[in-house]
Simulated assay, not measured.
Amino acid sequence: MFEAPESFAGVPHGMPGPGCRAAILGIPFDCGTHPFRVGARQGPTEVRRQSRLVPRHHPSLADCDIPARLGLVDCGNVALVPGRIEDALPLIEAAAGAVLDAGAVPIGIGGDGSVSLPLMRAAAKRHPGLVALHVDSHTDAYPYAPEAPYNAATQFTHAAEEGLLAPGLSWHLGVRGFASVAGVLPQAGSLGFRVVTTEDLLRRGFAQAVAEFRDAAADRPVYLCWDMDVFDPSVAPGVCTPTWGGLTAREGIALMRTLTGLNIVAMDFNTVSPPQDVQGMAAHLCAHMIMEALMLLP
């Protein structure tokens, strides 16, 4: 008569236990301050729904049940109120901390980009020397007004200022397009981030760029942040801040597959905004990218 809420790829609900190496954590939150696109709070539900379309085996890369290999569980959604930013951040951090303390890699499904900050706070407390690989069309390291410090474009500013990340080793990868204020690239550089634009990434090649990041990161713990607007709006229309000239689906998958060998301790996928999506395209692609990311975990 009753049916359990949908989980990612049909994995069991619950908190990580023995043998569980990764856990899905839904974060149904957006700041509610975007001038045109509010709706990323609905992202976790729609990504889970679209995950039905992503099979759990990859015959040529991992011919096994990928979630089962990791003992993947779905912890459900963090209980919070979208738009109440300063209330939500500690709740998200605590939820991620519980997953990390259980010995599992939290895989956050946002939500807008602001959710990355509390997830990085939780990871940094448990993994000193954390570095970030931020795949996004924006740096999200913008300056902020003291009276309104938190939004979906300042999370990496706070991460740097709070000392969450090892200095000089974190990258913004795939940055492109127009910005709402001047000086965003120098601002990111002043905070210790390296910025690799989409044009530079495509010119150099994914393997070469990531190899350089891997060498710099060495064996340090890595936080992987994947903003879905790194993709071109033609393949991921339902994102908070679409920017033309992005990666194709094939290019994004190829980039993800170069990330082997990194010591990934936490990750998130963010900015899927279902009210602006078309036939669930961005959510479906996000679910696929999460499955690709699961193959990176040992």
Rank of each mutant, 00 (worst) to 15 (best):
T157V: 10
T157D: 11
H158R: 10
A159R: 10
A159L: 12
E162A: 08
G163L: 05
L164S: 06
L164A: 06
L165Q: 03
A166P: 11
P167C: 06
P167A: 05
G168I: 02
S170C: 05
S170H: 08
R176G: 03
G177C: 05
G177T: 07
F178K: 14
F178H: 14
F178Y: 12
A179P: 10
A179L: 10
A179C: 13
A179G: 12
S180H: 12
V181P: 07
A182M: 13
V184I: 15
Q187K: 11
Q187L: 10
A188V: 12
S190K: 15
S190M: 14
L191P: 02
L191Y: 02
G192M: 05
F193Q: 03
V195L: 02
E199M: 14
E199Q: 15
D200R: 15
D200H: 13
R203A: 06
R203F: 11
R204F: 09
G205S: 14
A207S: 05
A207N: 06
A207G: 04
Q208A: 15
A209K: 01
A209N: 09
A209H: 07
V210G: 02
E212H: 05
E212C: 08
F213L: 13
F213S: 02
R214L: 06
R214Q: 12
A217H: 04
A217V: 04
A217M: 02
A218S: 14
D219A: 15
R220D: 04
P221Y: 11
P221R: 06
V222D: 00
V222F: 06
V222H: 03
Y223G: 01
Y223K: 09
L224E: 05
W226H: 14
M228K: 10
D229R: 03
D229S: 05
D229T: 08
D229H: 01
V230C: 05
V230M: 06
F231E: 00
F231R: 01
P233C: 08
A236I: 09
A236E: 02
